[in-house]
Design a protein around this nucleic acid. Structure first.
Lengths: 213, 213
DNA sequence: AATTTTCTTGACCGGTTGGTCAGGTTGTGG
DNA sequence: CCACAACCTGACCAACCGGTCAAGAAAATT
């Protein structure tokens, strides 16, 4: 029965425990908010004593900050598709798919982000003012190029971006409401496919997207 | 200087204080979440001693419940426009305008609702299962009738409703992010007009809305 | 004017929370 | 094998929080 347990290296221990803590923290922060979350609950969910958690993350706020930063970086990564696309149909279509997939697979992260922004971004305001502003400007430029090339109607790129964020993240942030309106059941594979289809159809038609070439 | 202060009736005192408390509570709950909000802070913001607040609302949860219920009723009221409209252009257009106006004038309420739903609706789950389900079914029927009458494309009414909620409430819930991306300034009258225009344009074109008759 | 009901509030309390710490255990590098 | 550094944790604490209460002030009722 006893597995041949090679002793873990310090590095492995550290990586493993930090991962356990961060995963547990994301869930607890998402379900209870920063104020409602307790370090004890995060520790229990990670399977560690509270004091051990404080060994890796000195304060509740430091842990929270790390959780939010990880989410933010995941999101930025998911948007590279944007730049390589020949036009809005491919670019926006793939972006909508990617963001809806994140909402499906990673809803807790989306909720933590939403909560942070709703509370006036006390810990990531600097990121909003630097990284997010740059990222948004870059993407707006891409959309403007598509407009100039006659590939879509002259929509204000900013409002289009907000609509994309709103619509895709809604399925994570308001997942509980959507589930309740779906007879208490989570959306099926088929329903998620329909969501992607509906969102892409409405938005791409709504902005008058035309195939490149 | 001294105003001729007629002594307030008990009824006036009660109404005035409950209003002060509810307004303060909505702001504090929106900014800090249920868990992060403290009764003391709400009392301070309302200009009353904490013990006095507990005289009107026995527990923090009872106060919170009242705040959420008020928001919910405001929202339902704002959607009567839907039924009287001859087609999607008038009905959805007016609904988008109304919901964006609420996001602008009443962002705290929207945030409290979002927070409540994100935390799995611990205090208004029964409302979701009854009132919200009925309301949604009714509105979906209206949209389906428009589709059957050839006034718009055959879009799944459910996903259309979610998109309307997501897009309009986004401007309240993520108002801080939007403000940051707007050089730290709140949206101007002109910008709010552009928002309404963009959202209506994209969605109405996106669903292929045609004028009734 | 007397009595009752409603409103007000400083002081207080038990429970919880984030965080500390001393002393122990375990892997690591020489 | 030894000395050191990294990791672990039960016990503890000060601060804070939601809620209570008793005693008084103000309005309503008679």
């Amino acid at each position: 029965m006893a597995s041949q347990a090679r002793p873990l290296t310090k590095k492995e221990i550290r990586e493993e425990n930090e991962k356990l803590i961060l995963e547990a923290a994301e869930k607890v922060f998402a379900e209870a908010g920063f104020g409602g979350a307790t370090v004890q609950l995060i520790a229990d969910m990670a399977g560690l004593p509270k004091a051990n958690l404080h060994y890796y993350f000195p304060t509740k706020e430091a842990l929270y900050r790390q959780v939010v930063q990880n989410i933010f970086h995941d999101w930025l990564k998911a948007a590279d598709i944007f730049d390589e696309a020949p036009g809005p149909i491919e670019g926006l279509g793939a972006y909508i798919d990617a963001k809806l997939e994140i909402s499906r697979r990673h809803p807790a992260g989306s909720k933590v982000w939403a909560s942070e922004v709703m509370h006036r971004a006390p810990v990531i305001q600097d990121y909003l003012e630097t990284t997010l502003v740059e990222w948004t400007d870059g993407r707006m430029a891409v959309i403007q190029r598509w407009i100039d090339a006659g590939l879509m109607d002259p929509i204000d790129p900013r409002h289009l971006l907000y609509m994309l964020w709103a619509t895709t993240q809604h399925y994570a942030d308001f997942g509980h409401q959507i589930e309740t309106l779906n007879n208490g059941r989570p959306l099926s594979d088929r329903q998620w496919r329909d969501v992607k289809e509906s969102v892409k159809t409405i938005i791409l038609k709504g902005i008058g997207a035309r195939p490149a070439q």
